[in-house]
């Protein structure tokens, strides 16, 4: 990818612990503008923790983390986020469009503007849900709700997108479409795409971070099947230009 190498997220000797149990230790990386980074690793490896650190929802216990040269909590406005777990009540009385609009709600004061509503319509269009804008969020399927949450993350036109296992409750067909969408989104922003299952490693991913307490980076080209297999004891799937190819018995 022909990008000027502009650092967007920088971690230096980053560590985090809940109470005393270390979750992340000595993590170093720099993510550059326009990169699509696949974040893989076993359950409990610390992927969501890294995402929350980048969002500024939790503070590092050691080391430094900068987003666009600023403290994470200051740079939040530049970040779009799709959480792994939905803590909200799925029967909450709210329309699809209103959910998307919460992505650009003023922090303290002020209502949604015409521009906000146009952005919400645009975001819903990108995830293919324009026709459901006025429906109740509660009436959508799990996969559709997940797409609404992606639209919510897109509505503020963030330069960084953090997707924490966005395909967790999306079926296999949808999740390939999903990947297409994510790849499209990554053309003009930095994307962290977290996944734990078989490692959704797209050809379009620029880099792969494997997180298990520490961070090990794998260039996509070097991501050999036996390596991933050894990490997960599971087959790898590879997506090539929207065609889904099972690479279980392929040598990369």
């Amino acid at each position: 990818m022909a990008q000027k190498r502009f650092p967007v997220v920088t971690a230096r000797n980053l560590s985090f612990a809940y109470d005393t149990a270390a979750v992340l230790q000595g993590v170093n990386f720099t993510a550059y503008a326009g990169e699509m980074i696949a974040v893989i690793g076993p359950n409990g490896g610390g992927k969501s923790t890294l995402i929350k650190l980048i969002l500024g929802l939790i503070e590092p216990t050691q080391g430094s983390l900068h987003v666009l040269g600023k403290r994470p909590s200051v740079a939040r406005g530049e970040i779009g986020y799709v959480p792994q777990y939905t803590h909200f009540d799925t029967r909450f009385p709210i329309s699809v469009r209103e959910v998307v609009l919460t992505g650009c709600t003023r922090p303290v004061f002020g209502r949604h503007t015409k521009a906000d509503k146009a952005a919400a319509a645009g975001a819903l269009e990108r995830v293919g849900l324009s026709d459901r804008a006025l429906d109740s969020f509660a009436e959508l399927s799990g996969g559709q709700q997940q797409r609404v949450l992606i639209a919510r993350a897109l509505v503020s036109d963030p330069s960084i997108l953090l997707l924490d296992e966005p395909t967790a409750n999306v079926d296999a067909f949808m999740s390939d479409r999903f990947l297409e969408l994510v790849v499209n989104l990554a053309t003009d922003r930095t994307v962290f795409f977290v996944t734990h299952d078989t490692g959704y490693v797209s050809e379009e991913s620029d880099r792969v971070f494997c997180i298990n307490r520490s961070l090990v980076e794998h260039p996509v080209a070097a991501l050999r099947q036996d390596l991933v297999h050894a990490t997960y004891s599971q087959p790898v799937r590879k997506v090539l230009h929207n065609k889904h190819i099972d690479t279980t018995h392929m040598t990369l």
Partner: peptide, 16 residues
Amino acid sequence: PQIQSLCFDETYAETR
């Protein structure tokens, strides 16, 4: 708008 956002998804409101 702020109350609605908070009631629907507090964590997300915080990230905004």
